[in-house]
């Protein structure tokens, strides 16, 4: 009944990107996979209409963000980034990278869920204010104010980061 081959192709081609977005939202790769799985199941349910309207990826992104926000509403937003992968920290350069990443993920974890979603959608997914507002079902003004507060908070957190110079130097805005 459904064009499942097309769905499978879409799911395979989009899930890595969606998983990165979900990771930035929640800070945990396993949980990100769960959100992507939930999002892609929602995509399957609406697949025929999405195909007709050409909005597969946009809906998938929205579904993943919704799954994250649903989860965040159920729990206090206490997730912290997973421990750094020790296999990556084998040289000084990589150590700097890991520290910067940890600082960023810690700073993102300190944001309210919708603020975090605004930042990820605006600056990772490169969505416009209007598109972000449509995805989050809020006004453009809300997106602007949430993003502004998030950026202020990120700047403050990263400047106070105990992770040292790399994080401070990497985030100068």
């Amino acid at each position: 009944m459904r064009d499942e081959a097309a769905y499978v192709e879409f799911a395979q081609s989009s899930r890595d990107r969606l998983r990165r977005t979900a990771y930035l939202l929640c800070g945990d790769w396993d949980q990100a996979s769960d959100f992507v799985q939930e999002g892609l199941i929602r995509v399957y349910v609406r697949w025929p209409r999405l195909v007709r309207n050409g909005g597969e990826l946009a809906y998938a992104r929205k579904a993943v963000v919704s799954a994250y926000l649903d989860h965040a509403r159920r729990r206090s937003s206490t997730e912290r980034p997973a421990e750094a992968d020790p296999t990556l920290a084998s040289s000084e350069d990589v150590a700097v990278t890991v520290a910067t990443r940890e600082a960023l993920m810690a700073a993102l974890a300190g944001l309210a869920p919708r603020q975090r979603a605004c930042v990820v959608l605006r600056y990772f997914e490169d969505l416009s204010v209007a598109d972000t507002a449509a995805l989050l079902r809020c006004t453009e003004g809300t997106v602007k104010s949430q993003t502004s507060r998030a950026l202020f908070s990120l700047r403050s957190t990263l400047e106070e980061s105990p992770s040292g110079e790399p994080a401070e130097g990497a985030v100068s805005w």
Binding site: R20, L24, T97
Partner: peptide, 9 residues
């Protein structure tokens, strides 16, 4: 910030 997020993920 964009670069950091791309690198982090």
């Amino acid at each position: 910030l964009r670069e950091l997020m791309r690198e982090a993920s």
